[in-house]
Design a protein around this nucleic acid. Structure first.
Lengths: 180, 180
DNA sequence: TGCTATTATATGACTAGTCATACATGAGAC
DNA sequence: GTCTCATGTATGACTAGTCATATAATAGCA
């Protein structure tokens, strides 16, 4: 599981609350990389604290609910550094659309094409989002860090491009067959 | 969840046992598309039977354990046909390697490069596997079916190619930086 | 004799992730 | 006056998927 390490990485940048993590990170910059549910974030923070990889102080607020501010510990830092260099098993991708296409022989061509076009719209939007991302030259971010972020964004973008191209080709193939 | 529909699709081709599904399908042709655990296959078959989408007869064997032979019902066929035409939400891909790269700024370059090269080996092997797949012109498979299978395989292959290319580029980028 | 493999089904225990909802406070809208 | 939104944290119930292990018969190997 990588989520604990995503959180450790984010807490290494600076201290944050669970709410910060959700709204500043997982809804934003990291979203293309690792999506996470609010419930899961809080539960993972609990686990990280129990393991001694993060520590927590409560900030009492009177106009708003109190905040639990988390920061990475030395043990957490060591753990993160080790994880960052250890081999992780690649994810298994399960694509429902491919299953549909695989078994679609009895389905009329226009219905299949419609499915693919629906997906194309979604993917084109995602691709546009990827291409719109500007990696900020934040005060504390080094050139090296920006380069790494570019590499990450590059794969995400290429992935979407590949998908879009394939969808366009697949639609063209099926359309040419419809007409013949 | 698509697994029930993968199984329906496979049972539509011909009747099978849980064991058949695992050994002939999920370990083989479908593996690039949808991986499934043996436990999950059996439990899904139970659910499909309870829903009336498949039926089952027991074949008594004396030299070996009895087999439960499953076939798709008319209700199952209708259900499958509908599912095949309904929009499925695209999967969320979570790539641990990208998380590592994103937070790798403090990690020495050679360590990062090693990670990427490890992944490159894995992905090149996968790509070779994809390219080695020959879609059989089985007796009962139509030209249309083969075309669809080609489209599916095409995306899987393109996906791996994209990954391999990106890894090579990323490694080159990091290496050039190491030397400067 | 004991070890492993193949064929076949089944179950318990677990992890990762999702969805809904609860609680609490203050601010602004209608 | 009520309704919703933003800020915060927390929990219960669920789904999908994984891992290990049980059962049971036969066959082959050392």
């Amino acid at each position: 599981m990588s989520l604990p390490y995503v959180i450790l990485g984010l807490l290494q940048q600076r201290q944050r609350t669970g709410y910060d993590l959700k709204t500043e990170c997982f809804d934003d910059c990291i979203a293309h990389l690792w999506q996470a549910d609010q419930a899961q974030i809080y539960r993972t923070l609990d686990r990280l604290e129990a393991q001694g990889w993060v520590s927590c102080t409560v900030e009492i607020q009177h106009d708003r609910p109190n905040r639990k501010i988390y920061r990475i510990t030395e043990a957490g830092d060591t753990e993160l550094r080790q994880w960052l260099q250890s081999h992780q098993i690649p994810p298994i991708v399960r694509e429902p659309l491919l299953v549909q296409l695989y078994f679609a022989a009895q389905i009329p061509n226009p219905a299949i094409i419609q499915l693919l076009e629906q997906e194309l719209t979604v993917r084109q939007k995602k691709l546009a989002e990827c291409e719109a991302v500007v990696i900020p030259a934040a005060e504390n971010s080094t050139e090296r860090q920006q380069q790494l972020h570019h590499l990450v964004l590059d794969l995400v973008t290429r992935r979407e491009k590949t998908y879009v191209n394939w969808l366009q080709d697949a639609i063209a193939t099926l359309q040419s067959q419809s007409q013949s």
